[in-house]
């Protein structure tokens, strides 16, 4: 855990729509370390998935990155041409999507889909690729890999499909795996299997994982570090134990209060008053201040980054004084 694998600085993404410019990301700062699992949490529309897509250079049509940098092993990906990104995608940075039944191609067997990715990025003959694909299916703990190679996605259950798509993502030895809500569509018992697999893959394959999720409990169980997003900005980031159990930012606290916990029975779940700000208006000051119970006048200014501990940062005026 020395030099970060990925360094994102001041990433801003906008979409042109008929209603005006939507400010999707408003200056994201993130670091992902080697062999680290970083959780990216937030509610619908806060920019979690867009951050993942920006790293891969897959911003949807109409979107434009207006500023910022994404450093990957010292190279700024935002300055690279599409041909370079094609070499990176799948080989260095791979993605696991939320719904494996739509991310896998229904017309090809699992084996063919793994080999397609390898053919694109590696020089290997057919038998080598076949063996490597079999091995990958073993790594993701699918039973009877030889049979799975020749099955089509519809023959597999949701959990098995997600394992297969993880195998595809790992096929070229990626350094970073972006997992976008990988277990949201799965049942809890299957979710536990997949999360456990990802945890062990990080140890065995040495791959760093960016875990995009809306579920704080999933973060608590699988990640080492977490960044909490609100309205396209990081509001708090740091080690999981510090951010979740010694939360500083009022939004992180409110989110934790709103999540049902076993110990919360009999108490009232605290709803957050108000709604998420519209992306149509550019942000001035702290995005959470209109809903914040402790908002002050200074909150109309952009919040400062305050280091609570060397690894734990919060973007809030409430802690600005304690720094000096």
């Amino acid at each position: 855990m020395n030099e970060p694998l990925v360094i994102i600085r001041d990433l801003r993404l906008q979409f042109r729509t008929y209603a005006g410019i939507v400010h999707a990301l408003n200056g994201i700062d993130l670091e992902i370390y080697e062999q680290d699992v970083l959780g990216l949490v937030g509610e619908t529309g806060c920019g979690k998935s867009m951050t993942g897509l920006c790293i891969l250079g897959l911003v949807p049509r109409g979107g434009e990155i207006v500023s910022g940098s994404i450093g990957f092993r010292g190279e700024d990906l935002l300055t690279k041409p599409e041909s370079y990104m094609q070499q990176v995608r799948g080989a260095k940075i791979a993605m696991v999507f939320q719904d494996p039944s739509t991310s896998l191609n229904p017309l090809f067997t699992i084996g063919q889909q793994i080999e397609t990715v390898m053919k694109r990025h590696q020089q290997a003959d057919k038998t080598q690729m076949h063996e490597r694909a079999l091995e990958l299916l073993k790594v993701v703990e699918l039973p009877d890999p030889a049979r799975i190679m020749d099955t089509y996605p519809h023959e597999l259950s949701g959990g098995m499909k997600q394992r297969a798509s993880i195998a595809i993502a790992l096929s070229c030895g990626a350094d970073l795996l972006i997992a976008d809500e990988p277990t949201t569509d799965l049942d809890v018992t299957v979710q536990a299997q997949i999360l456990d697999l990802l945890r062990r893959l990080r140890e065995a394959q040495g791959v760093a994982i960016l875990m995009i999720t809306h579920d704080l409990a999933v973060v608590a169980e699988t990640c080492q570090r977490v960044a909490v997003l609100y309205a396209g900005q990081v509001v708090e980031s740091g080690p999981v134990d510090e951010v979740l159990y010694e939360a500083k930012h009022p939004y992180t606290r409110a989110l934790l209060e709103a999540s049902p916990k076993r110990s919360s029975r009999g108490k009232t779940l605290q709803a957050i008053p108000g709604t998420v700000p519209s992306g149509l208006r550019p942000l001035e000051g702290c995005a959470f201040s209109p809903r914040c119970p402790r908002a002050m006048e200074v909150c109309a200014q952009p919040p400062p980054r305050v280091a609570v501990t060397p690894a734990h940062a919060v973007y809030c005026y409430l802690y600005a004084d304690s720094e000096e």
Binding site: S157, G159, T189, A192, Q193, E221, L244, K261
Partner: peptide, 25 residues
């Protein structure tokens, strides 16, 4: 028991070793 242990939890003291079921329904 397996369902309870598979449920991700925010309660720190409940994050113990879990029973992970194999297969699906």
């Amino acid at each position: 028991q397996a369902l309870l242990s598979a449920t991700p939890s925010l309660d720190r003291e409940l994050r113990q070793q879990r029973v992970i079921l194999t297969g699906g329904v």
